[in-house]
Write a protein that binds this DNA or RNA. Structure first.
Lengths: 308, 308
DNA sequence: CATTGCATTTTCAGATTTAAAAAGCCAATA
DNA sequence: TATTGGCTTTTTAAATCTGAAAATGCAATG
């Protein structure tokens, strides 16, 4: 029973609503309401509910619609980790992997890729489009594509972290920065849950995702979309790199704790403290790899203080 | 005589080589060499040379290839200012314009756009792809596109400048920052030429382009591609905004002077000074619009110095 | 023996068609 | 009277095809 991508996505979102407790057993799911919420029409919502009814999460009553039937632990696990087009993501990963490990040349034609990965034209197109959006592939002037060397080296890691150490703490000090309790509570919940759960058992993917989410949600509060956008972009690139390296789970616990500390500081209104904590937090990830001199920043600061 | 886009582009590049003095009268243009240089095959280079020969810039000798024939002022003017697909850029501008001035709704279907602007499917696709790359349009979950409110407000201007004030000075203090004399000389040349020329006569487009180029070339020297990429991206967005507002040419002279000062500092190796000058330079553009408090940065710096 | 000039092959964009998916509509119903 | 459920219409995505453009091979030439 092959069903549409969108319906899948929405089925997951509905399942999330149920498992998160926003909907409880016996509640009535109104089609239009859900459609509005997700920004789609009723068709895919309807289809998603059909699927969930077939799985037993929902119950359909003739001419009255769907109702939550039961909530068991097994259902929570049924949520697909990512609702994104399965194969595209795969193909993309594969290409990225091959490029990062020098298994493909820097210049290729679409044809070559089609053959190598056995893809259709539009699949190749999707993958290349994505790669170019993420900044590591570009069309050549004539025929063919060129892959860019960015992020191949281990230094890329360092570069990303230095960039983040600059923008993330600064974002908190933006004049339009406003605390958003909802975001803070949501993130606290996520981080606490990770600490409670057996970290070893969580998939690496989820660890990376939650980590990135934390930082992206916080930077949003700066109310300067350019900070947010930049972070989202470097994070995409970073995920490409981190996918390959095994996640060091011993550090994850420490990271969660630091995340929680930052949330505490923010909630108490100690924004400058939080900004500083964020800087240390990011610096920590960096210094594990190599001793970095921060002297430059002190120079700059001294300079500015003098100049004032 | 309609000829291929690529050949046009290359014809312009070749003309540029001649007018810039890199090639002089009588020089032999080797096909393969040029093809390699431009990253294309010999075919479009050949076609471009045919075109230029027809125009009289080059001379073809039987079985010996093409040679530079003459260099007159009229030829320099023949160079098309931008070699980018003419209409795509136009359509894109038009759409952006309409969105910025609220003449189209936030949510549209491709169909709507096709009708409104009388475009083919792939044209619409190109334009939307570009808009999504530049961050102001995104696909809805189902059918249709959503335009994002970013950069519509005048505050967007301020936000962009605050972002730039953060990353551009910091880029100069990156550990991998290296002076590149070639870049510095090239930029100095451009800035000087602008000061010499009657600023009133330069097209606004060119002013904006040169300004953006200056900053993008400088940030490259940080050797941290993430700084460069971020700047390129906010600049694209900025151009969208600035296109609409008339360029204040009285400020352009001052800006060029500041650019030159920064170049001088860099060349003398006073990088920290240069970084600071860059910050002031960007702050200047901002403070023209509204008085901005810089207090936050001092707080942060104090904090960090104390924390050390 | 490097380079040209032409011929040949390959690649890809655009148009067209076909299939799939989402949105909209409206009578039936609780 | 709000909502569903089936149905129709609209919209987009995928597959195929075709021709123009770009890349490449090679004999001819200086």
């Amino acid at each position: 029973m092959r069903s549409s991508q969108l319906a899948q996505t929405i089925a997951n979102e509905i399942t999330l609503l149920v498992t998160s407790g926003e909907l409880s057993v016996g509640d009535h799911l109104k089609t239009q309401q859900l459609a509005d919420r997700f920004g789609v029409s009723r068709s895919p919502v309807r289809e998603a509910m059909d699927m969930l009814a077939a799985q037993g999460l929902l119950e359909q009553k003739e001419n009255r619609g769907f109702f939550v039937k039961e909530v068991t632990d097994s259902i929570a696990e049924r949520v697909r980790e990512d609702a994104e087009p399965f194969e595209v993501a795969n193909d993309y990963q594969r290409l990225a992997e091959d490029w990062l490990t020098d298994r493909i040349p820097a210049e290729v034609t679409e044809q070559m890729l089609r053959e190598r990965y056995d893809l259709t034209k539009s699949q190749v197109n999707d993958v290349l489009m994505r790669a170019s959006r993420e900044g590591w592939a570009e069309r050549k002037q004539g025929y063919g594509w060129r892959f860019l060397p960015v992020a191949k080296t281990p230094e890329a890691f360092e570069q990303i972290y230095r960039f983040r150490m600059l923008i993330e703490p600064a974002a908190m000090l933006e004049p339009e920065f406003r605390l958003d309790r909802k975001i803070i509570e949501e993130q606290r919940r996520i981080q606490l849950r990770m600490l409670e759960t057996d970290i070893e058992r969580l998939p690496a993917e989820r660890l990376l995702h939650n980590g990135a989410l934390f930082h992206e949600e916080l930077i949003k509060m700066s109310n300067n979309p350019f900070f947010h956008l930049s972070l989202v972009r470097v994070n995409r690139m970073r995920r490409l790199l981190e996918y390959r390296s095994r996640v060091d789970r011993s550090r994850t616990v420490r990271q969660c704790q630091e995340h929680l500390e930052i949330l505490d500081l923010l909630e108490r209104g100690e924004v400058v403290e939080a900004s500083y904590a964020m800087r240390r937090h990011l610096g920590g990830a960096l210094s594990k790899k190599s001793p970095v001199t921060w002297s430059w920043s002190h120079q700059a600061h001294e300079k500015e203080l003098l100049g004032k």
